[in-house]
Design a protein around this nucleic acid. Structure first.
Lengths: 199, 199
DNA sequence: ACTAGAATGTGTACACCGCTCACATTAGGC
DNA sequence: GCCTAATGTGAGCGGTGTACACATTCTAGT
């Protein structure tokens, strides 16, 4: 009996579940994200969420989709359209910071063996792919845009994961920033650029 | 009653658990790796493994440690000491192939929110770090070895994860190889090299 | 306004999980 | 040969995902 006097129908249980799931993720990490806990937090019986999400994975995928949207916002907020390697490094740092600031969310987004045919997820990652490719193409018009875009995304993504897993020194934000900027510059500074302005 | 006529003591339950854990990981993925399933497969009561592993995480860490060792072997087998970007791309491809061929193992190694102070794991990753740094230093003596080594590992690691998560086209081994080689070359070909031999 | 049926939420139940604890069995050092 | 430590057993607790039958409420068509 979740509520003593609440109405039988919740009103918007779907988004309430999503909200509860995100809170639990922040508080207890991925392990704490159980459908039952979500139901408890939403003030609803344990099986009610199944009316809105086929199973746990579906809920997790919905959370991940939100994460993708927020990551995209954070990246464009870091710099709307970087035109130098240094500005790109700023965006890269924002990516890594996202991973370190919200590790559980980042893991849910990338480290779960999820089904790849979830519509929301596919759309969200396609957006990131496009963003990176356009960005790289603007920065290095001479290069093979696809290959370099893949390389840049992989570089940044790898930096995020290695930091997240303690494979690199993440003791201070400054150390992280130095490594991310160093790695990005080490790789990009030698490339023939067109729009190169800063260092 | 796991065995009708087996001896009370297993003999080497520790390694039997490890072996069973690896098999379950291959068969059912990370989710299927439960202590109870391991115990069943080892022909032993559900709680017996606790004599050898403090908890599930400890077992998983032991499995991951084996994974690190095997990854190191695979890398050196791919090329003992690469001296050109193309040879390095071959090693990179071996890394990505490891991730794609044994996704559950790779995820256990890198995608689990594990405690970073597990001795075996720390030692194993330190070995990889050293390997990559020496390799990069030999290839690009002029560059900042640490920064470039970080970049290269991150690049390869990111490629592995993006492929694993379906963010890149992994439909055929050839597609994977092309992308990995393309990305590595896109990034490294422009760098001032000393020992550059091949393309 | 009434009513059928669709949507939504509840409760029960099952199998599985990690893990603790008291106990049984065995191996090895004295 | 015995005593102790190591190892394995079994019952049991609280948690989980999820299938199922049932209750309630909303909504549309009359």
């Amino acid at each position: 009996m979740p509520q003593t006097s609440g109405p039988y129908h919740h009103g918007d249980l779907r988004t309430a579940c999503l909200r509860a799931a995100r809170e639990l993720l922040e508080e207890d990490g991925s392990a704490g994200l159980s459908l039952r806990a979500v139901a408890r937090r939403a003030g609803v019986s344990a099986t009610a969420p199944y009316r809105h999400y086929a199973d746990r994975d579906a809920l997790v995928s919905a959370v991940a989709a939100e994460g993708y949207r927020e990551l995209a916002e954070i990246l464009t907020a870091a710099h709307p359209s970087p035109t130098t390697p240094d500005e790109l490094a700023t965006v890269a740092l924002a990516y890594v910071r996202f991973a370190l600031d919200r590790p559980a969310m980042f893991r849910v987004m990338f480290a779960e063996p999820c089904d790849p045919d979830n519509e929301e997820r596919v759309a969200a990652t396609a957006a990131i792919t496009r963003y990176v490719r356009d960005l790289v193409h603007g920065l290095f018009p001479a290069a093979d845009a696809d290959a370099l875009a893949t390389a840049v995304w992989a570089l940044v993504h790898g930096l995020a994961f290695l930091h997240l897993d303690g494979k690199l020194d993440s003791s201070t934000p400054e150390a992280v920033a130095a490594q991310v900027r160093g790695a990005v510059h080490a790789v990009l500074d030698a490339l023939p650029a067109a729009t190169r302005g800063g260092a």
